[in-house]
Amino acid sequence: MRNLILTRLALAIVTLFFVSVIVFAAVRFLPGDIAQQLLGQSATPENVAALRQQLGLDVPGYISYFDWLGGLFRGDLGQSIATGRSVSELISGRLANTLFLAGFTAIIAIPLGYIFGFLGALLKGTSFDRATNVIALSIISLPEYFVAYVLVVLLAVKTGWFPALSRVSPSMGFLDYAERLVLPSMSLGFVIIAYIMRVTKSSILNVLGEDYVQMAQMKGNSRFRVMFVHALPNALAPIINVTAINLAYLVVGVVIVETVFVYPGLGQLLVDSVAKRDMPVVQAVCLVFAGIYILVNATADILIVLSNPRLRHAK
């Protein structure tokens, strides 16, 4: 089992390496001259050449890749073309904001997803089950910005309960900060609750069909004990998996929600930089997102291995 876990970790590192190559190569080798695009058609050839040099486009690809990678390890991600500021400085504050929003949402939404999933399995076929099913399906079918804007209309514009925009700054007090987080995390949270609920419910229902669950009933266990002691430990793998997918989604899904609420996180930085074609920033943010995503997925895979008694206790 230890080998399995180490292999999975090694795989994550290798994947991260390849992803960095892809992120780098995308800018470098895909059709479209970034320098020309940035300066526009009217730019003089001298200006374009100068910018190419600044972006490191004039040296062979593999050399500038290793320069870039080396900088990465030193925490030096280069300079933003648009603002001239250091990329790592730009990212660090934004990353904290994004992680805060994601964490805030996760703490509330993920347990709610589990609870609704358990209830759905326990009350299968009742009107509660049907109603939550339909609601979950609808939420999954909605674009994220739709949920966000509906919340803005209902809870900000019409009632004025919460601010419609979430511009925050480090100097703000905690309550002010939290108030501005409510609508963005609700927009993210609904989708997460819906996904986690559906998977939790169906994986428990799957296990309820197993022979050992019937045996547990024939041994006189209560319905509650059958569900939580006998079924749940064997339904963990898909539940862990969907939790990871949603945690990863939280970090990535913020791109849209941050745009809607003008929340100064990493996602908004990415969208702004994309609009300005500020490639050093785009590359760095993409790599950070991919890194978090890979890390979360690797953690989930390892937890799944740990939750499997056949792997935990070898023959």
């Binding site: 992803v19 892809i22 059709p31 990535v252 899904g253 590359q283």
Partner: peptide, 21 residues
């Protein structure tokens, strides 16, 4: 396939579309 799936879809799309238009 695993490698392509290891990058969040939306982020990957943003990156490529920024470059190629």
């Amino acid at each position: 396939n695993d490698l392509l799936m290891a990058i969040p879809q939306l982020i990957f799309a943003l990156l490529i579309l920024t470059v190629v238009g």
